[in-house]
Design a protein around this nucleic acid. Sequence first.
DNA 1: GAAAATTATTTTAGGCCTGAAATAATTTTG
DNA 2: CAAAATTATTTCAGGCCTAAAATAATTTTC
Lengths: 179, 179
Amino acid sequence: METPAPGLMLDRETKASERPGDHKDELRLWLRMLTCSTLIETEIRNRLREEFKTTLPRFDLMAQLDKSSTGMTVGEVSQRLMVSNGNVTAVVAGLLADGLVDKRAATQDRRVQVLTLTAAGRKAFKAMAERHESWIAELFAGLDQPEIAQLFRLLGQTKTSLHRAIAARANEAAQGDVR
Amino acid sequence: METPAPGLMLDRETKASERPGDHKDELRLWLRMLTCSTLIETEIRNRLREEFKTTLPRFDLMAQLDKSSTGMTVGEVSQRLMVSNGNVTAVVAGLLADGLVDKRAATQDRRVQVLTLTAAGRKAFKAMAERHESWIAELFAGLDQPEIAQLFRLLGQTKTSLHRAIAARANEAAQGDVR
DNA sequence: GAAAATTATTTTAGGCCTGAAATAATTTTG
DNA sequence: CAAAATTATTTCAGGCCTAAAATAATTTTC
């Protein structure tokens, strides 16, 4: 793998593999992805506050419970939402106070707290979810169906790449602990 | 635009345009993008904490200041980072306490606070930025160069779409205020 | 079967973040 | 030029979020 002198390098030869240590493309990609996510999140937060006087963490938590008919434990919810257990406990406290969620210890294993939406919670979520879906569609209106499919596919590959890299790092750390 | 009876609909005819009110594809796209962003953010936060005992908001703020030789105002930083002014004030307070950032009122307009990295701040940032870039490259290692370029392009279109939809909404609200 | 280890959740201390109100400085306007 | 409006920043109250420690219940192990 040779690195030609800068002056002689043709544009189409300027590949990452030929510029050891340079990863500006990946960095720009990440910053652009972060911009998109932040724009969407901020807009959805604003609309949830304006139209429903609620917050995104509450909406996200209710969305998880809505998908499960039998209820979910605190741990399951925290895994799905990729937040800490303590955070779930805190957000649930607010939803309990508003009567939107029910929490009860499981009968077999009393360590486990099972969370379910109340009737009021299901009703409130249904109304929000419908609006939420249309907001998202509005935000992505500038992409046609093939572009959406292609972006979805590339983000799928990204997700796989991330899981692999993160797991590799975790393994290294675990090895380090033993030595 | 007709909607065929469900039983007769061929798979390749199941387009969003033929299912009025259905925007599940956009929703799935958004959730996948959010998963990717969250995975990257969480991993970068962990590594910044472990290797540099610092946080992502501090790193991001220092990155903005590092790009500007003449310094930036609180308002400029808050716009670039897409966070509130008050948040910049608070994060800067920590960086000031650590001697990484300098803050002084502009001579002409004493409302304006100009922020710059100190020598120690520039040095600390340089070390972190180098590691940060390689972490990002590691995380995206599963994508080849054309995939990165294509994803970058599609996210560019997404960004445009988002700006347009958000501006449209803001205009509606402004119209509503006048009436 | 009791001590030890594991598992699920909550609590705690502390940082991030926001919108709205307050403060302070500048610019505009009558 | 002084009052009013605007602009930049800070303060404040409150919610989100985390890691680490504490608590509580269950399972494993000897």
